[in-house]
């Protein structure tokens, strides 16, 4: 019984290490193909539209309501020790440094990561990836590199827009619901906001964009077993993106704290 238990732990550990190794090789190959020609500009531009432009509504809506809720909640907390004037500063710092990149990353993972995994997974099970190889086209360069690069570039752009929409949402609630003075709210927002607050959020966003598109490509690329396999790849892409975003967020925050 004990030996069976140990064997089970060993099997799980080996499987985990194998997955880590496989993913590491996939990542190295992806990064290499991003920087070496040929570059598929048309595919890259299409991915910019698909990952960035079409994610705007969902990211914008998330940012708007997050900013609105944040203003209300911080007001509740800060009014307990008469620090209502800090609402604007905490909203903008909370959004730019943390909430806009993380929530945008999670929303894009749900929308784009799943779509990438499903598309590439379907291409795998219908032999379209094999067809690419027979047509002398490297699937890493054609499918993976443009998506990962587009993810790294578009997510910071989305987060920048989310910052603006989120702060506007906070402003709207503060002035319309909480009776803050508009000009003093704006002054408090910008007086204490530093460039590094925004930049650290954008760095996080770029890493999250890399994670989301890489996970989508990785799980799609390695899917097997027909429709069920594609479904499994999609779920795994979203779940692993969520986990990696949250885990890497902590380490990035530590790294970018100063």
């Amino acid at each position: 019984m004990d030996w069976n238990f140990l064997a089970a732990i060993g099997r799980v550990t080996l499987k985990f290490m194998q997955a880590v190794g496989h993913l590491s090789l996939f990542t190295v190959q992806t990064v290499r193909h991003i920087f070496t020609p040929p570059f598929y500009m048309r595919i890259f531009l299409r991915q910019l539209m698909s990952i960035g432009y079409y994610s705007l509504p969902v990211v914008g809506l998330t940012a708007l309501f997050t900013g609105m809720v944040l203003a209300l909640q911080i007001y509740v907390g800060s009014s307990r020790f008469n620090a209502e004037s800090a609402v604007a500063t905490i909203v903008v710092i909370g959004l730019t440094r943390e909430l806009a990149p993380v929530l945008s990353g999670l929303m894009v993972a749900g929308r784009v990561g799943a779509a990438i995994a499903a598309e590439i997974g379907t291409m795998r099970v219908t032999e379209q990836i094999d067809a690419l190889v027979t047509l002398s086209t490297n699937p890493f360069k054609y499918l993976v590199a443009p998506r990962v690069l587009a993810g790294m570039i578009t997510l910071p752009a989305l987060v920048l827009i989310a910052d603006i929409i989120g702060v506007s949402g906070g402003f709207l609630v503060a002035t319309e619901v909480l009776d803050f003075n508009a000009s003093s709210y704006i002054k408090n927002t910008f007086d204490f906001l530093e460039t590094r607050d925004v930049v650290s959020g954008l760095i996080k966003a770029s890493v999250f964009g890399f994670i989301v598109s890489l996970m989508g490509c990785y799980h799609g690329f390695n899917s097997n077993g027909g429709a069920q396999g594609v479904g499994r790849a999609t779920t795994n892409a979203v779940v692993s993106s969520f986990i990696l975003i949250l885990v890497s967020d902590y380490f990035l925050t530590v790294l970018l704290l100063d």
Partner: peptide, 29 residues
């Protein structure tokens, strides 16, 4: 890749690229 430039392949279920129109599938190589 160089060797495969001189080959063509017809797959069992055609394996056409869904995201491209017919002519781009044919002209892909």
């Amino acid at each position: 890749e160089k060797t495969l430039r001189n080959t063509g392949m017809l797959f069992q279920y055609a394996a056409l690229f869904d995201s491209l129109p017919v002519w781009e599938n044919v002209a892909f190589g």
